[in-house]
Amino acid sequence: MIHSLFLLLIFPGFIFLSIFGTYAEFVDRKLYARLQNRMGPPWFQPLADFIKLLAKEDVVPECAVPGIFRIMPIFALAATTTAFCYVPVWSTHSLYPFSGDVIVVLYLLTIPTITFFLGGWYSTSLFARIGSVRGITQLFAYEVPLFMSILAAALLANTWSLTDITLFYSRHPSYTFFNIIGFAVSILALIGKLEKTPFDIPEAETEIVAGSFTEYSGRLFAFFRLTIDIEMVVGAALLSAVFLPFGLTLGPIVGFILFIIKVLFIVGLLALIRTIVARLRIDQMINFCWKFMAPLALLQIIINLILKGVL
């Protein structure tokens, strides 16, 4: 019991995720700044932002539905943290593996977007409503390619369990190279999920202020921000478990260090992509997802099906 609580709440659960999440945000911001030839924030900046927000007043708009408005950040945080229980960290084994957990993780990672939508919609601000509708529209565009590319990898491993997928690929590391298209597609889909440039349409600052988060302030906003940080880590961990399953058999310490490196590598990749492109419009984003990403993910499935027959 105490052991389980330790695992869930402290390591590698909530506390570890929060700290690592804020650190990942720091890496993201610092790298973004350095790529733009700027100095960037000091290492404690995301933490300081979080603490500052905690100290601020929570303002709930008069017209908002207070219950939903207040509960949504907690919901989002719980969903992302839960998802991490099923992602392998330092070994091929996740905390509580079961058959079909890859589907559960993907769905748990969808919940934050839904909570952003609900929170934004029930705050009744115009900007928040436009932002939340944009967010939900975007969800339908990137979610399918993401599911397809991750399930393509699962298809080749012939299992619906993340633990078994990781085990399969660490036994046959050369097979991961077949999934390179899937990796590229899911990186792009992850950008959409995290609402970063070029897919930061739901919170495009110059158009709709802060999108769904326009009315959020204080603690509630702090939890939303923490959710996005944790979502970034969990998403990156998911991709590294499926597409970069190297060195997981070398023992917990090496595996853990490799995990950190892999996650930061993906975070860095996200920062690089958001440095070099402009934000797309929602119609362009949907076109891009359905015209390029979905067919590519489909191609990945076909490749893996053929491989399965051949190998």
């Binding site: 700044a33 350095r34 733009q36 700027r38 960037g40 440095t275």
Partner: peptide, 12 residues
């Protein structure tokens, strides 16, 4: 962008 990663930042 990649080259400026190794340049000295211009902000102070």
């Amino acid at each position: 962008v990649l080259r400026s990663l190794f340049k000295k930042p211009v902000t102070s």
